[in-house]
Computed example of a mutant assay.
Amino acid sequence: MSTPLNARDLLDTMLGYLGFVFEIEEQERDGHLVLQIYTHEADRLIGKRDQVMDDLQYLLNRMLQTADPQARRVIVDVEHHRAMRDDALVEKMKHLAEAVKTTGRPIQTEPLNSYDRYVVHNVFKDDPEVATWSPPDDAKVKRITLRLRKKTA
Score class of each variant (00 low, 15 high):
Met1Cys: 10
Ser2Lys: 12
Pro4Thr: 07
Leu5Asp: 01
Asn6Cys: 14
Ala7Glu: 01
Arg8Gln: 14
Leu11Pro: 03
Thr13Val: 12
Thr13Tyr: 06
Thr13Arg: 13
Leu15Tyr: 06
Tyr17Gly: 12
Gly19His: 07
Gly19Trp: 09
Phe20Tyr: 13
Phe20Lys: 00
Val21Gln: 12
Val21Asn: 12
Val21His: 11
Phe22Thr: 07
Glu26Trp: 07
Gln27His: 06
Gln27Phe: 02
Gly31Trp: 07
His32Ile: 04
His32Trp: 00
Val34Asp: 07
Gln36Lys: 14
Tyr38Ser: 14
Thr39Trp: 07
His40Leu: 14
Glu41Cys: 04
Asp43Lys: 12
Ile46His: 04
Gly47Cys: 01
Gln51Ser: 15
Val52Leu: 09
Met53Thr: 01
Met53Val: 01
Asp54Ala: 15
Asp55Pro: 00
Tyr58Ile: 05
Arg62Pro: 03
Arg62Gln: 14
Leu64Ile: 02
Gln65Ala: 13
Thr66Arg: 15
Ala67Ile: 04
Ala67Thr: 04
Asp68Gly: 03
Asp68Met: 06
Pro69Trp: 05
Arg72Glu: 13
Arg72Phe: 07
Val74Ile: 10
Asp77Val: 09
Val78Ala: 11
His80Gly: 03
His81Lys: 08
Arg82Trp: 09
Asp86Val: 14
Asp86Leu: 09
Asp87His: 02
Ala88Ser: 10
Glu91Met: 09
Lys94Val: 02
His95Ser: 15
Leu96Glu: 05
Glu98Met: 14
Lys101Trp: 01
Thr102Val: 13
Thr103Asn: 14
Pro106Met: 02
Ile107Ser: 04
Gln108His: 15
Gln108Asn: 13
Pro111Tyr: 08
Leu112Thr: 07
Leu112His: 05
Tyr115Gly: 00
Asp116Gly: 09
Asp116His: 09
Arg117Leu: 06
Arg117Cys: 05
Tyr118Ala: 10
His121Glu: 05
Asn122Met: 05
Val123Arg: 00
Phe124Gln: 03
Lys125Met: 15
Lys125Cys: 11
Lys125Gly: 06
Asp127Gln: 04
Ala131Asn: 03
Thr132His: 00
Thr132Pro: 01
Trp133Ile: 00
Ser134Val: 11
Pro135Arg: 15
Pro135Trp: 05
Asp137Met: 03
Asp137Ala: 06
Asp137Gln: 11
Asp138Val: 10
Ala139Asp: 11
Ala139Trp: 09
Lys140Gly: 08
Lys140His: 12
Val141Lys: 14
Val141His: 12
Arg143Ala: 07
Arg143Asn: 08
Thr145Phe: 04
Leu146Glu: 01
Arg147Asp: 01
Leu148Gln: 02
Leu148Ile: 09
Leu148Met: 14
Arg149Ile: 02
Lys150Asp: 00
Lys151Gly: 01
Ala153Gly: 11
